[in-house]
Every structure is written in structure tokens, then in C-alpha cells.
């Protein structure tokens, strides 16, 4: 075999492997819509009971994921700033803690949250005194979503801030800006793409969570939980009907994300 032929042979392998994976990922999306039966659609979205269930679940999913994202923005952007700009003892440990939810199996994450903030958990009594409860509550849904998506927001924003020349902010300080003002005037506008991308990633991640929700807050039902329930109770066509609608929403998020992500 000549070297050129050998190169061509390896090219074939390269393309074969690549297209196999692409197909593996693409076929489910196509098949979902192929399986979509107008009948089941009509029965889900035509029934006042089922349609309102879907509407409520969608509202819960959207409201909780938006709330979780806003919470993460308020708390996570400052954390990302500190991690990007400051050196302190134990920084590696803090970074590990932030990334922990990333590697935790979802059911385990749910159990962890229960043992920490559940009514019989470590801080349960304290939360109860404040009238807060995570089991089967909207707050619980938000807590779960914030827990699993925190690393995405913090890491994305951290990378953005770390890529900015610190002297830009330093110059703003010397020109008369306090630390907060310099951050708002200079660093934040320079990092906004990363902040937006991080927020979108965190939102999408929260929206897609189901494992930890099964453990902590089955109610109020999110759309993911409802899809699982429909699959068990009514069968695949009903689950497909709701999934198809949800997939379209997820795809819209994905497209927005692709446009916002720094090239």
C-alpha cells in the first residue's frame, strides 16, 4: 500500500466514525417526530384536563428554571469573578466544590440535597423555622435546578472574566471607579457574552433535570416528570406528543445558545 492510499484508508475510517456518531445523535430527533401521532396530539392537547396538566408543568419548568438562573446570576457571577481574579488559600478546594454537582449522579445529587436541606436534613429545622421547605415544593424544584446547573454558570463566566486583561479594570480604578463601579462599567460589559452563554447553559441544564427532582420534588410536576408519568400511565404516543413540543422548545434554546456563544 502506498502512503497516499494508506492516508485515504484512514480518511475513510475518519469519516465512517464521524458519520456514525452524527447519525446516532440525529436519528432519535427524526424518529421522535416520525412517531408523533396526530391522534395522540389531539387527545393530549384537546383534553382540557391533560392540556392544563401540560400547561402547568411547562409553567413550573419555565418559572423554576428562570428563577434558578436568576439566583445563579446574582450569586454565581460574583463567585466567578473571585475565582477568576483572586488567589487565596483553599481556592482549589472551592473550585472542586463548585464543580462537584457536575460529576454527581443525579439521584445522588437529590439525596444529598435531602440530607442537607430536607425537613429532616442538616439545615431542615432552620429552614422550617423560616417557613421554607424543599420537599415537593416550588422552592425544592428551584434548589435542585440551581444545584445541578451552578457549575455551568460559574465556570463559563469565570473563563470569560479570566480572558479579560486585568489592567483594563485596574485603569478604571485609577480613573476614579470603586471596585463595584469598575466591575459594572468595564468587566461585566466585556464579559457579557460569557455571562449570557453561562446563563443559557444553566437554564437549559435546569430545564432538563429530572433525576434529582424525582428524589426531592416530584410535585409541583415539571414537564420532564409529566412526560415520565405519561409514558407509564398512558403509553408512548402520549409521551411522544408532549416530548415533541418540549424538544422544539429545547431546540430553540439551543439555537439561541449557539448564536450567543463566543466563536
Amino acid at each position: 500500500m502506498s502512503p497516499v492510499e494508506r492516508v485515504e484508508a484512514s480518511l475513510v475510517l475518519l469519516y465512517a466514525a464521524s458519520s456514525l456518531l452524527v447519525l446516532f445523535l440525529l436519528i432519535p430527533l427524526v424518529s421522535l417526530y416520525l412517531r408523533l401521532s396526530p391522534e395522540a396530539m389531539a387527545r393530549v392537547f384537546g383534553s382540557p384536563v391533560l392540556a392544563s396538566q401540560v400547561r402547568d408543568a411547562l409553567a413550573t419548568s419555565l418559572a423554576a428554571s428562570v428563577a434558578s438562573t436568576l439566583l445563579l446570576l446574582v450569586l454565581g457571577v460574583p463567585l466567578a469573578y473571585v475565582l477568576a481574579r483572586r488567589e487565596f488559600p483553599g481556592k482549589g478546594l472551592v473550585e472542586a466544590v463548585v464543580d462537584l454537582p457536575f460529576v454527581m449522579p443525579h439521584a445522588v445529587a437529590g439525596i444529598m440535597l435531602l440530607t442537607a436541606y430536607g425537613s429532616r436534613g442538616l439545615l431542615g429545622p432552620l429552614l422550617q423555622r423560616a417557613g421554607l421547605r424543599i420537599e415537593d415544593s416550588f422552592l425544592g424544584v428551584v434548589a435542585v435546578m440551581a444545584f445541578v446547573s451552578a457549575p455551568l454558570l460559574v465556570d463559563t463566566v469565570k473563563a470569560g472574566i479570566a480572558s479579560i486583561d486585568p489592567m483594563v479594570e485596574a485603569v478604571a480604578r485609577t480613573l476614579g471607579a470603586g471596585p463595584v463601579r469598575a466591575f459594572l462599567d468595564v468587566t461585566l460589559p466585556m464579559a457579557w457574552r460569557h455571562v449570557a452563554a453561562g446563563a443559557l447553559l444553566a437554564w437549559a441544564r435546569g430545564l432538563s433535570e429530572v433525576g434529582a427532582l424525582l428524589v426531592v420534588a416530584y410535585y409541583p410536576k415539571t414537564l420532564n416528570i409529566l412526560i415520565l408519568e405519561y409514558l407509564q400511565v398512558y403509553g408512548l404516543p402520549y409521551a411522544v406528543a408532549v416530548s415533541a413540543a418540549y424538544a422544539a422548545l429545547a431546540a430553540a434554546v439551543f439555537i439561541a445558545l449557539r448564536r450567543l456563544l463566543p466563536p
Partner: peptide, 20 residues
């Protein structure tokens, strides 16, 4: 004193202009 109260201005090697 923090930098913003020193009345000192800085031109760094990178210029550090505000790009936005």
C-alpha cells in the same frame, strides 16, 4: 487609599482601552 482616591493615572503597556 484605594486606587480611585489617589489621583494617579496609569498608561499600561497593553494600553488597556475600554473596548466596548
Amino acid at each position: 487609599l484605594p486606587p480611585e482616591r489617589r489621583g494617579v493615572a496609569l498608561v499600561p503597556q497593553s494600553y488597556a482601552l475600554f473596548p466596548h
